[in-house]
Each structure stands twice: as structure tokens, then as C-alpha cells.
Design a protein around this nucleic acid. Structure first.
Lengths: 73, 73
DNA sequence: ATGTATTATACCTTTACGGGTATAAATATA
DNA sequence: TATATTTATACCCGTAAAGGTATAATACAT
């Protein structure tokens, strides 16, 4: 599970558009777009602001385990 | 468990100096310093390069759970 | 105490992230 | 089909991240 997919799924589950998510998270629309598009050079604090909206946080995860916080569907 | 502490602990456990970690991870020394100093505006890909050296990856973690991948000591 | 190794802080430059916006493409909905 | 909504791509620009290096501070020896 990529971070980009994770955010996209969470956003859709919350029935938010990208502009709505951007505003609620306090980041720019461009950032949300880039993040969901899989750009991996984003800034940690901005990613955190988005994740925190869904009750998540950036952290270190063992590589053999699943990146996804198992609630895929 | 903050990401900064996590990296510092892992590095010490691996008996690496900051310059050594920087070189092995393929990032600048300044980056390792800033990361361990708790700067939270770092770039995701750079943080990933460091974490991958220890078999970890950046991912989304539920905020109520512990950020630390429980092996603190 | 002195000396060595490691880490923290400060300064400078280059680079590109992030914001804003416009436009194109895609996805509904009727 | 056409229309409306959402998302993707492209552009410009200010600002700060990242790197390099020098110096100060700290830790750890002896």
C-alpha cells in the first residue's frame, strides 16, 4: 500500500474532493494532487497534516510487513 | 517514539557515526543531523533512504498506536 | 587535567518543493 | 449526445530544504 493510494482511499471514504481535503488539512491543492499522484519527495510535515486528518501519522514501518494499516476493504 | 529518536537509536545500535550513516544512506551529513535533531520538514524520499538502511520504511500509522515499532529496549 | 572522536550549530549556495492558477483530461449525470 | 464536476498536467515564482564546510560543543577516553 503506497502512501498515495492510502490518502486517495481515505479521502474518497470521507467523500472529500481534493480541494476540500487541501483546505481541511491546511495544505495547498497542488500538494494533495502531487501526493496522490505518487510523488515521493514531499515534505514530512505536510504529509503529516494530511494523515492526521484521518487519524494517522507518518512513522517507521518494517519493510517486510504491509505498509497498509490493514483496513483496505 | 519520534522519528528522530528512532533513527538515532538504530544508528547507535549499528555502531555508525553520522557521517557513516549519511554515506551509506546516500544523503548528506547535514540531513542526518537535522533528522536526528527533530526537524520535521524533511523530504520523504530522503527519510526513506535512511530508514531503508535499517529495514524500515515511511508509512501511515494510526495515531493512537505507538509510533515506535516496539523494540525500544 | 589534556587529547581525540563525535555531534551540534552557523553560514552560504543551489535546487526544487509548494502554492497559486489556468487549462486539459477524465468521470460522472442527465 | 451535452453538461457539470472532479482530477490531472503545465506554468511561474518565492522560499526553504539539502548539501558542503567551518567552528563550537559535547562525549569519551587516557
Amino acid at each position: 500500500m503506497l502512501l498515495s493510494e492510502f490518502v486517495k482511499e481515505k479521502r474518497n471514504a470521507a467523500k472529500l474532493t481534493q480541494p476540500e481535503l487541501a483546505e481541511k488539512a491546511g495544505v495547498g491543492l497542488r500538494f494533495v494532487r502531487d501526493l496522490e499522484q505518487g510523488k515521493d519527495t514531499m515534505r514530512l510535515d505536510k504529509v503529516n497534516k494530511v494523515l492526521q486528518l484521518f487519524g494517522y501519522q507518518v512513522g517507521a514501518i518494517p519493510m517486510n510487513r504491509n505498509l497498509l494499516p490493514d483496513e483496505k476493504g
